[in-house]
């Protein structure tokens, strides 16, 4: 397609940095801050958007794995919902970011319910807690790498770039 999305994003960053920011009065600090953040957001979106579908697929796969790990130890009255959410996620259209996001949310709610253990808060098997913490670490790593460009992460230098991160999960 002409013009492609990457080109348009690059153009907008240039417009912000070279035309819009210099034209903003010095005392308009909020506007200046926001213009700089717009450029930062655009740079980050520019790095991400092509991989977004792949990223959501990986995230869903990992969450499905956790759901399967939690299923055997889940209280019976919660297990049905979890199994149903899993089945829905397995059947979702993996070419659609929207469908994957929806599956992610549905399965996430079912997993939350198992973690809280219903009204009597039945304890979680320790193996399940281990699986959960393993998953949570992978999830945190993935999101930190994905958003590395925000430069807020104190350990950003330890994180892989997007391409490496997604390749590792193949």
């Amino acid at each position: 397609m002409l013009p492609d999305i990457d080109l348009r994003i690059a153009n907008m960053i240039k417009a912000l940095e070279q035309v819009i920011l210099p034209a903003l009065p010095r005392d308009q600090r909020l506007a200046r801050d926001q213009a700089m953040l717009v450029a930062g957001h655009l740079r980050m979106i520019g790095e991400q958007w092509k991989s977004a579908l792949r990223y959501e697929q990986v995230a869903l796969d990992d969450l499905q794995g956790l759901a399967r790990d939690l299923l055997p130890g889940a209280p019976a009255f919660l297990a049905d919902d979890l199994a149903a959410a899993l089945a829905m996620a397995e059947a979702c259209d993996r070419a659609s970011v929207t469908a994957i996001e929806q599956a992610n949310i549905a399965i996430g709610h079912a997993v939350d319910a198992v973690i809280l253990g219903g009204s009597d808060h039945a304890p979680m098997p320790s193996a399940a807690v281990d699986r959960l913490l393993d998953y949570a670490l992978r999830h945190a790593r993935r999101e930190r790498s994905w958003f590395k460009a925000n430069r807020l992460d104190p350990d950003q230098n330890d994180l892989p770039d997007l391409v490496t991160m997604l390749a590792e999960t193949n």
Binding site: L2, P3, R8, K14, A15
Partner: peptide, 26 residues
Amino acid sequence: LGQAMRAATASNNHQEVVLTWLGSAG
């Protein structure tokens, strides 16, 4: 689709956002 896209790709203009905007009407 030619000149505007090339100038915008090379970042050789003062308002590429206009070039790509017009380009998208090609």
